[in-house]
């Protein structure tokens, strides 16, 4: 077993025994179940209720990842545990990768447990989602979790203060969740079309199948929330095409771009973070 996996395993053992993990999991479960109970009637009218309910995770996963992950590397530096870890044979790279893998394992266990619970409820109640919707939806959820984990561990590897890490991450969350449609997209729209109004009704249909305006399809997917929004319908369609035969009404290019965006969020920040961490004085 590599140093990375050993550090990851110590991480997981430590996390499983932390009260925070169980509290957060309980809150998440409660939130998901409550939402299902409140909006169950709306779901009954949709084609794929499970894929629809996954949007619960769009806003919740980043919060979960930030809460359980922001200390990943910076916490080790602040507490000094990094000195204990680096006192053992292993490189700084093993710290970053070990933290990433360890937190990923913990977070995926929580997210998947809640999502599977949710899928069981939805299938029992509506029964309209097939295996490709469930598997595809869960796969996209995993990728989406990794996207937020990548940026969280990346920021955590660069900063030397926990407050700054949490500040940057909450700022990013606010940008993606609160300010994106009203501010970012309006600004981009102003630059591209000359009008602040994007001309797209955010509630109109499935974002995945939207075909224009082209700039909107790509810029909007830079936000992992929207990339997730498209991918959770697109990937099940791909699975259908591959395994049971079928077609998709979703355009390939912007949706594949969206998957690339999620992959980039999962990897690029953590690589940059590692690059900076590698050169830092740990004192």
């Amino acid at each position: 077993m590599s140093a990375t996996l050993r550090i990851a395993r110590a991480e997981v053992t430590d996390a499983v025994r932390s009260r925070a993990l169980w509290v957060v999991t309980a809150v998440l479960s409660l939130f998901v179940v409550t939402r299902l109970w409140l909006y169950g009637d709306l779901l009954a009218g949709t084609t794929y209720p499970f894929l629809s309910t996954l949007d619960t995770f769009a806003e919740f996963v980043p919060l979960l990842v930030i809460i359980l992950g922001y200390r990943a590397v910076v916490g080790e530096r602040v507490s000094g545990r990094i000195r204990l870890l680096l006192g053992q044979p292993g490189r700084r790279r093993d710290i970053v990768t070990g933290k990433y893998v360890g937190r990923a394992a913990t977070l995926l266990a929580v997210v998947l447990a809640v999502a599977l619970l949710l899928s069981a409820f939805v299938v029992a109640q509506f029964g309209t989602d097939g295996p490709t919707e469930i598997v595809g939806g869960l796969a996209v959820l995993v990728l989406y979790t990794f996207a937020w984990l990548g940026v969280t561990v990346g920021v955590s590897s660069v900063a030397i203060s926990e407050t700054r890490v949490i500040g940057v991450l909450i700022g990013l969350y606010a940008l993606c969740v609160v300010l994106w449609d009203t501010l970012v997209m309006s600004l981009v729209s102003l630059v591209v079309t000359g009008q602040a109004d994007t001309g797209v009704d955010p509630l109109a249909g499935r974002f995945a199948t939207l075909e224009e305006p082209t700039w909107f399809l790509y810029v909007n997917r830079l936000n992992p929330l929207h990339a997730f929004d498209g991918a959770r319908y697109y990937v099940p369609d791909l699975l259908d095409i591959a395994f049971v035969g079928g077609t998709t009404t979703a355009p390939h290019a912007p949706n594949i771009f969206g998957l690339g965006v999620l992959l980039a969020w999962a990897t690029v920040p953590v690589l940059v973070g590692y690059w900076r961490f590698q050169r830092a004085d740990l004192d």
């Binding site: 110590a10 430590d14 025994r17 932390s18 000094g80 545990r81 000195r83 006192g87 053992q88 044979p89």
Partner: peptide, 22 residues
């Protein structure tokens, strides 16, 4: 060559911390 060094030495650093829950 941090890894080669750390494989041959034992370290008791200052201002370290342990895994509280291990």
């Amino acid at each position: 060559n941090p890894r080669a060094v750390r494989e041959q030495i034992g370290i008791l650093p200052d201002e370290y911390s342990l895994y509280d829950r291990l």
